[in-house]
Design a protein around this nucleic acid. Structure first.
Length: 496
RNA sequence: GUCCCCAUCGUCUAGAGGCCUAGGACACCUGGUUUUCAUCCAGGCAACAGGGGUUCGACUCCCCUUGGGGAUGCCA
């Protein structure tokens, strides 16, 4: 059997290190067995998917060297590799129809209001919230009537009313999940797009995926996937559920608490081989215990049974140490110079910076000091640096937190949009623009005197800016749980 | 609430019943090398969540408790 693995990110935000983590193990496993690794774009959520995000995912996985054998930009025999294009071919519709025909799925006309109420009532009774099956009993006449009145509908899958599903996972004992705990999953949304559950099953089968390596968060939906394979008469691929990367507080790694974007680590000046090495040592180890290893070395000694199931905390300190080793031990001076130029010390990057700096210098020697913040990581700040004229320390903290939230909501990171965003914030907070911007200047530029803020932020990019805002918030002692709730309330009251 | 997964130093991990007085690494502390700093070297601190079994013998196997996490969407 030829091994084929896949990673299937949805292009709905920044390229996540979790995606790279899964891709790394998929690739390592595939390479170890002389198999193939496929990149598939799961853009069935029309409202949230963007082409920019897709491009970033492609770029950052490629930056890491996680090259795919087939994907949206690499021709392959099982294309297209973008689900939206597969939707256009009517691929999922066809299987959805087949499932309905065979009595494995049904059309459901229930409104979201009714479903909300139903779930609420079930939860209150201490039950597992799931669809109550109302539309499963509809007669042919009922369906005809709905068809005539063009009632929007979804397609749901039929779930056994009793018994247990056994989920086989290569890394753990058999998992038993009662069918009563499985909802009659929507397969086709009312807009005609498939949900993840239908799309993943159809595509994995059609693309001849043999091993599904994915996050632990999917264990509970595995029964749906197994059942769909049965309904369609297909063989189920082998399952490997990887542990989830965690924040220092052990919750699932999230951008609210940590920089999660691969772009951030690139921007911070990490080497791709070090990042990959670090991801590889989370949940996996070399047989001889060596911590520094290249991807090829990982493949050469790869053994899926050496994956440990405890949830690893993503520790930037250790990544930094490892990156230092790569820098010192694996690069010649020549290569070091080349990498540095590739990274940021190049003409293209300089041309972004010069327009902001040239008016502010008289001789070249002044340049480094004024532009350094654009090439640095976290600015070195103390609490004293964040004492701002006209503002109480509480206000500074609040402004920074609000700025962070505002910036998290921003979809496209551009100068003018940033400008609008913070003008709006000042207005909503009923404060002078200058006062609101002052702490943000310090947090971003490391000094109250700096080139224009929004241009600088645009150059630094969203991840670096968010990280710096968070950095300053932490310097001020951070925001406790209680205070966070209060601030959140206040923030939401600002309106949009 | 219900279901599922997981559990070794603060963090990443080694450990497949006796090799464990639990090993390595990051972080931290101490000392050495270095004009300084960094690197490097040497050393130190620090863990088997708790309770029951099984066994001649449990970090390792089983059960319970606790803790953490996840799922519970017309998001993936």
């Amino acid at each position: 059997m030829k091994v084929r693995t896949r990673v299937a990110p949805s292009p709905t935000g920044d390229p996540h290190v979790g995606t790279a983590y899964m891709a790394l193990f998929c690739l390592a496993f595939a390479r170890q067995h002389g198999g193939q690794f496929i990149l598939r774009i799961e853009d069935t959520d029309a409202a949230r998917s963007t082409p920019e995000s897709e491009q970033q995912i492609l770029d950052s996985l490629r930056w890491l060297g996680l090259d795919w054998d087939e994907g949206p930009d690499v021709e392959g025999p099982f294309g297209p590799y973008r689900q939206s294009e597969r939707v256009a071919q009517g691929l999922y519709q066809q299987y959805s129809d087949q499932l309905i025909e065979n009595g494995h799925a049904f059309k459901c006309y229930c409104t979201s209001e009714r479903l909300d109420e139903m779930r609420k009532a079930q939860t209150e009774k201490g039950e597992f919230a799931k669809y109550d099956g109302q539309c499963i009993h509809l007669s042919a006449a009922d369906h005809a009537e709905h068809l005539k009145s063009e009632t929007p509908f979804v397609v749901r899958m039929v779930i056994p009313t009793q018994g247990t599903c056994i989920v086989k996972d290569k890394l753990r004992d058999d998992i038993e999940i009662d069918w009563s705990q499985i909802d009659m999953q929507v397969l086709l949304k009312s807009d005609g797009n498939p949900t993840y559950h239908l799309a993943v099953v159809v595509d994995d089968h059609l693309m001849e995926i043999t091993h599904i390596i994915r996050g632990e968060e999917w264990i509970n939906s595995a029964p749906k996937h197994i059942l769909l394979h049965q309904y369609l008469g297909w063989d189920m691929p082998e399952l490997v559920h990887m542990p989830l990367l965690r924040n220092p507080d052990k919750s699932k790694l999230s951008k609210r608490k940590n920089p999660t974007s691969i772009l951030f680590y690139q921007r911070m000046g990490f080497l791709p081989e070090a990042v990959l090495n670090y991801l590889g040592m989370l949940g996996w180890s070399m047989p001889d215990g060596e911590e520094k290893f290249s991807f090829q070395e990982m493949v050469d000694s790869f053994d899926i049974d050496r994956i440990s199931l405890g949830a690893p905390v993503f520790d930037v300190d250790k990544l930094t140490w490892l990156n230092g080793r790569w820098l010192r031990e694996s690069l010649s001076d020549d290569e070091f110079a080349d990498r540095l130029v590739d990274w940021a010390y190049n003409r293209e990057n300089l041309l972004k910076v010069i327009p902001l700096i040239r008016e502010r210098v008289d001789v070249f020697t002044e340049l480094a000091g004024k532009a350094s913040f654009l090439l640095e990581g976290m600015p070195e700040l103390t609490e004293a640096d964040l004492q701002i004229k006209n503002l109480e320390p509480e206000d500074v903290l609040k402004i920074l937190q609000f700025a962070l939230w505002k910036s998290e909501a921003l979809r496209t990171w551009e100068r003018d949009l940033l400008n609008d965003l913070f003008m709006q914030l000042a207005e909503q907070m009923d404060r002078k623009v200058r006062d609101v911007l002052a702490p943000i200047f310090v947090a971003i530029a490391g000094s109250p005197v700096s080139p224009p803020l929004f241009d600088s932020m645009a150059i630094l990019g969203p991840d670096m800016c968010r990280a710096r805002l968070r950095h300053s918030i932490n310097i001020l002692g951070g925001v406790g749980k209680k205070k966070m709730k209060k601030l959140e309330k206040e923030f939401n009251a600002l309106g949009r």
